[in-house]
Design a protein around this nucleic acid. Structure first.
Lengths: 224, 224
DNA sequence: CTTCTACTATCAGCACCTTCATGTTGGCAA
DNA sequence: TTGCCAACATGAAGGTGCTGATAGTAGAAG
């Protein structure tokens, strides 16, 4: 977990760094608008603590910039008391949270934790296809909200079918995709039969309709 | 990449040459101690395959000589089975790796590749690979600048994987590389499972992507 | 030297992958 | 339609890899 602290008051920055280190976060400090810009370009931080008052620019600008780059996640604004105007603008512009100086360490920690968690959930890539729900991160498949335990190969197979749905997929392509070995493109594809069978069986047992049709002499097609 | 093959059995030398040519290495053969000496004086090879039993001298002498000239890097000893004595002396005298006849082509290729990579890194002592930073001198591994404590075996394993990345590595090769005992090439490889598991676990916990895929019935491959 | 700790190796049980033998289906030609 | 062959499906079997627990081992500390 890597945190960027954008703050020109080096005393405060050091203080925060020290505390977050103890919390097992990895920290970097940017003392100016420009420095922040550079660091963000180089690395995707899990969380950014952003002071709006910077010697060479306003943090709100940085916020807008990040939003345009789809990097707006995980930003916590830290600013002086009573700057309610900034707070409103900041949250409108995509900041995730707001903290007024001075603040307690524990509070900061809680905010960061919350923001990072939210960000991780935002990343959970989920594919929905009729009664099927595929979680790419957790590598799980649900049918009607009921978990279907699939093996790696079965999962890969299902994913490949659904991402190429309504298209015919040759067994050669399947073999290559599953084994990652080009050699398998040419010789025997017996193992495909087995995996397809097992996948179909598991899905069917979970109450999922059969969308997979075999195209005789050609391959398979997932239709829906 | 230029490889010198010091081997008096012309049949074997020719065989190796042919294979390495296909692997896009440039090869030269020296059939005797003297010939090897001459060729090495003329050109800095990236890798030297050294048979210890030569008609006009012992390869170990050559090894010592090269070490005195600071040319000791990139040497792989190839020798008859059960010559454990030679192996120990060879590795003590600065050889980078050891291979017993007969060996598989793929195995040789992997070793050469590994040795050449190591030679290239000999100057920097730091290998960077995506979020991984490996310090060969300090024997430390970092993920996102955060230290990951690895045991010797785990470290050796990771290094071997990364030095041969995008190639399939047999468990036999791993076993020999880790234990330094060629007997392990043939019998049981159970301990490999344990080390691979522990390594993967530690890397994953540190937030490192999983680049290691197992090639069923073949070995492992580090892909990135 | 003894104790302690961290590391390494081994094992059994399980899940998974692949292959094989056999049964079934679909296309094609007579 | 019938028969044939190739493509596909299926269940069983054996090999392979993963995992947690456990025992052995070496190095460090006292």
């Amino acid at each position: 977990m890597k945190v960027l602290i954008v703050e020109d008051e080096s005393e405060l920055a050091k203080d925060i760094t020290q505390y977050l280190l103890a919390e097992h976060y990895v920290c970097e400090v940017a003392g100016s608008y420009r420095e922040a810009e550079q660091k963000i370009a180089l690395y995707d931080y899990d969380c950014i603590l952003l002071d709006l008052m910077l010697p060479d620019g306003n943090g709100l600008q940085l916020l807008e910039q990040l939003q345009q780059q789809n990097k707006q996640e995980g930003i916590i604004i830290i600013s002086a008391k009573n700057a309610t105007d900034d707070k409103i603008k900041g949250l409108q512009n995509g900041a995730d949270d707001y903290l007024t100086k001075p603040f307690h360490h524990a509070e900061l920690s809680a905010r960061i934790h919350s923001v990072i968690r939210r960000k991780q959930f935002a990343h959970t890539n989920i594919i929905e296809n009729h009664e099927l729900t595929i979680d790419l991160l957790a590598k799980t498949v649900k049918v009607h909200d009921q978990l279907v335990p699939l093996t790696k190969k079965e999962f890969a197979l299902l994913l490949f079918f659904i991402s190429n749905k309504n298209r015919v997929i040759s067994k050669g392509a399947l073999a290559e995709h599953l084994s990652g070995d080009m050699a398998d493109m040419f010789d025997n594809h017996d193992f495909i039969y087995a995996h397809v069978k097992n996948l179909k069986k598991k899905l069917q047992q979970a109450g999922c309709d059969n969308y997979l049709t075999t195209m005789y002499g050609t391959g398979y097609k997932w239709e829906n």
